[in-house]
């Protein structure tokens, strides 16, 4: 990714790895979000605000509703109560076309990867890209695909089918497939789970690089302490369907709460 022409505005310079972000534009606003599955109250009252160019890491035990939260944000799951605003639009009030338009600006990395089985790695990346660019220019698409695969170190596997890839490789292809669309908002569901420490670190650095280069705002779900340290501007701890704690990595680390520290060890 060499071209810097796509960077909107001058926000990039305000970012500094950890720490606060100075742009105050809110890109995602979640207010009083509630979601219940049968008798299982997963989310009770979630308030979350994501600023432009900011990385928020969401921590929480397995099954605490982290995936449900980001699925509610893209409206893959309909919340029972509460409001979700994306880029100042209440997504509940949008019709299908408008929702699709907003979704075009969001990248979503699935916990399971969710690669299209029937398509090769190349086709997986081209699939949404062609529709987004509305072009058939083979060279341009091909260049972007190669670039994205190089970023995740999988250029040699470009013509393989997803079934021929390892779990970690699938995850990386999936990441490339999401990033190739240059989304304004990224939602990562456990981007480094199942990867070795070395690749994990590379992925975290890639996340950071993308954030700086394209001023993307991200919500990152992860259990990986290094990843929290590297990528987070702010950490959001989820417990019993509510926000248990919120602050920078350092804030939380120095809070002295042993439950939180067990995540940040």
């Amino acid at each position: 990714m060499q071209k810097s022409a796509d960077i909107p505005g001058e926000i990039v310079s305000t970012l500094n790895g950890g720490g606060r972000v100075e742009d105050d534009t809110l890109v995602v606003e979640v207010e009083h979000l509630k979601k219940t599955f049968g008798k299982n109250e997963v989310l009770k009252d979630i308030n979350l605000h994501l600023r432009r160019g900011e990385n928020i890491v969401v921590l929480g035990k397995s099954g605490s509703g982290k995936s449900v939260l980001i699925r509610c944000i893209v409206r893959l799951i309909e919340p029972d109560e509460g409001k979700v605003m994306i880029l100042k639009k209440n997504i509940e009030e949008l019709n299908n076309d408008e929702l699709n338009q907003i979704r075009g600006k969001i990248g979503f990395l699935f916990q399971s990867g969710a690669l299209y089985d029937s398509m090769s790695v190349r086709e997986n990346l081209e699939f949404a890209l062609r529709r987004k660019l509305k072009t058939d220019s083979k060279d341009r698409v091909d260049m972007l695909v190669r670039e994205a695969l190089e970023d995740v170190g999988l250029i040699k596997d470009i013509d393989k089918m997803p079934s021929e890839l390892s779990g970690g490789m699938r995850k990386r292809v999936s990441l490339a497939r999401t990033l190739i669309l240059k989304p304004e908002i990224m939602l990562y569901d456990e981007p480094t789970t199942g990867l070795d420490p070395f690749t994990s670190r590379e992925i975290c650095e890639l996340i950071l690089k993308v954030q700086k280069k394209y001023a993307t705002s991200s919500i990152i779900i992860t259990h990986d302490t290094d990843c929290v340290k590297i990528t987070s501007n702010r950490v959001f701890v989820l417990k019993d369907g509510k926000c248990f704690a919120e602050g920078t990595y350092e804030d939380l680390k120095s809070s002295g709460n042993s439950w939180i520290n067990s995540f940040l060890r």
């Binding site: 893959l76 699709n100 969710a114 299209y116 669309l181």
Partner: peptide
């Protein structure tokens, strides 16, 4: 079976969030 497995492995959701119907 094809569509169901796409549903189960979240491929349909993946299409939906990337703005493809």
């Amino acid at each position: 079976a094809e569509l169901a497995s796409m549903r189960v492995t979240e491929q349909i959701d993946a299409m939906e969030v990337s703005g493809i119907n």
